[in-house]
Design a protein around this nucleic acid. Structure first.
Lengths: 351, 351
DNA sequence: AGTGTGAACTAGAGCGCTTCAGAACGTCCA
DNA sequence: TGGACGTTCTGAAGCGCTCTAGTTCACACT
């Protein structure tokens, strides 16, 4: 197994007959040497099979790793159930990549977010947190490492950049439009209030201690309009199937709700299906409203009325903030992106 | 801006009054020092705000970075259109994370895969390639860096570990079952043959030079049964919407196909919709078959007949292979995971 | 007392790179 | 002709850590 040792800067320097510093400059500061020499260095490097400065050594010397970490509250597979996550992630990834930075993924296996050890060992010099419980250990880990941080949809943390959306206002907007058109009996289908995998009706106690900011705000936005006695069904994840089951349960009570308010489009898609399952029709018998406006909302059957939030923009903006922090920028004021109600065909006045 | 310099191993060593090596051991080899001293070191570290050995410096010294890179042929947002990707990615991520390694994402912006510079600078010591064109520059970049590599569903590369699925056989299986039940007029809806964003009918020339192995195999599996004159519609991505449009085009020809063979479930979902759009019924008027068996296939309307491949297993296995390569293991023979036909209600004999 | 043993800790040489303060060598203008 | 200046290249000091090959010391055994 005496494989030839990998070439280093020194190897190349020796072969060309210049100093290591010059080879380094050939890669990082072309203006510091003559074009001819640089050419010669690059050629020799190629012929030696040298692929450029080692990223790790480089990071150590420069004291930054050109990578942004992404801490997620759930497993990555959550993204196949919820398009919103993929879209945000994509916006983030492309921004970051466009600036020659890598994205280091730290998914949470359980729903509490990534393990603190994972965070402690991640080679990143800024992290983005998304959909973590308010008290996630990963948040503390990042903090004690002194990593600059940008949070998406999380509560404000001291010294942290933040991008958010007016979840409360958006939810109110949706509920109000239904109320205005005459609905009085509502049901709410929401995703997790706690990272414990619970599926079922929500008790007031549980509601009061919600550990996800987004859930809390959307829920309160709805209930602010419909009243706190509105039945709420919690789904452990934002998935079509769970939404379907939840909606079915809500629709089986009597008197039946005339409108279903869902905390995400994905849950709403399930609700749409549930209405059909029971032989009812949308929006004639039941109105259904979602949240997010993922691309599929437009093509649902019927097209889904929903609260639009600029998902890709959210990811992009988080990426830009992260990059700015890397440049030594201050966190600054939280950015609040706009939401709006997109009316399609899944809502109508009650019969 | 004279923020206090971040504590290092030396800081802690000095504070406790031991050598740097001992502090290092406190973190990495607890058996090398007395429990009492270790305790004292950890406490001092905590009180100093030292979060553990710097990951980058550690990587340089140990010569491995505890990270596996993931090179993807498309943007990450592809995963909201195609659950298969998320599931594979999730399997990979959890395996890798379970062994205390990070996942470094390198998405492709255009469809050619990540930029070679991105690959050259990524801090990973093994990479996994997925859904790249056969001639992606990223592949070469990884190779010249001398990174061990595992490819998923790619053509064999010398000295590379590989996990694959019998796409050709699976597709044949699906087509044969339809043929056996009497179908003779087929249409095929496929995802990209080339990374150029083409949507539309496929010419023989284009077919002959397909640059994605998976596409090629599934397509040839179908056509091997149905005949090479079968009309094929290409979609730039595997998405429901594109599949819907493609299927609609295929179904508008006369004589109309009695069965639609789709290269993915996602495309098949679109096809299901297209059949409805035209006022026809599945499977009475048209049979539709998918590929992948994503979770949604079971809950489609009607439940989708499809070729199952073990998606999560694919990701997990790739992760294990990557980890093994990291340990100096040899690539070994490609692993071939099993496929099977899952018959549900979207297929039936023709009228 | 002499020797062997194992546990506990340390010195110091790197890991592969960046970067800053020069050195060497023209060139140009007064 | 000489000094000021620019360009091109070099030397060497780190970056923060790991790890091998020790050294020390206490204790047990003969």
């Amino acid at each position: 197994m005496d494989r030839p040792r990998k070439p280093t800067l020194d190897t190349v320097a020796g072969a060309v007959g210049v100093s290591r510093a010059t080879v380094s400059n050939a890669y990082n500061r072309p203006d510091q040497l003559s074009a001819a020499l640089r050419e010669r260095i690059l050629e020799t490097a190629a012929s030696l099979g040298y692929a450029g400065p080692d990223p790790v050594a480089r990071s150590l010397a420069t004291r930054h790793s050109a990578a942004v970490g992404f801490m997620l509250g759930q497993g990555l597979s959550a993204s196949f159930a919820d398009a919103a996550l993929s879209i945000v992630l994509d916006g983030l990834a492309s921004t970051v990549d466009g600036h020659d930075h890598c994205l280091v993924l730290m998914p949470g296996k359980d729903k509490g977010g990534p393990r603190p050890e994972t965070v402690a060992r991640a080679q990143a010099d800024v992290v983005v947190a998304y959909s973590l419980p308010d008290d996630a250990p990963a948040l503390t880990a990042a903090r004690t490492r002194g990593l600059p941080m940008v949070v998406i949809d999380q509560p404000v943390l001291p010294d942290t950049a933040r991008v958010e959306v007016d979840d409360f206002g958006g939810a109110r907007l949706a509920a109000s439009s239904l109320w205005a058109s005459g609905h009085r009996r509502f049901g709410v289908v929401t995703f997790a209030l706690h990272p414990d995998g619970h599926n079922g009706p929500v008790t007031p106690a549980r509601l009061a201690s919600t550990s996800f900011r987004v859930t809390r705000d959307r829920l309160h936005g709805y209930l602010d309009v419909t009243g706190t006695d509105t039945p709420v069904w919690e789904c452990a994840r934002s998935s079509r199937e769970l939404g379907r089951a939840g909606a079915r349960a809500l629709l089986s009570t009597s008197p039946r709700p005339t409108a279903l308010l869902c905390a995400s489009d994905e849950l709403a898609f399930g609700a749409l299906q549930a209405v059909r399952d029971l032989g009812l029709r949308v929006p004639t018998d039941v109105s259904v409203i979602g949240f997010d406006d993922v691309p599929a909302a437009e093509h649902a059957d019927p097209p889904l009325t929903t609260v639009r939030q600029p998902l890709a923009e959210k990811g992009r903006h988080a990426g830009e903030l992260a990059l700015r922090l890397l440049d030594g920028g201050r966190p600054g004021e939280p950015t609040r992106l706009p939401v709006s109600l997109v009316s399609r065909d899944s809502t109508a006045p009650p019969k």
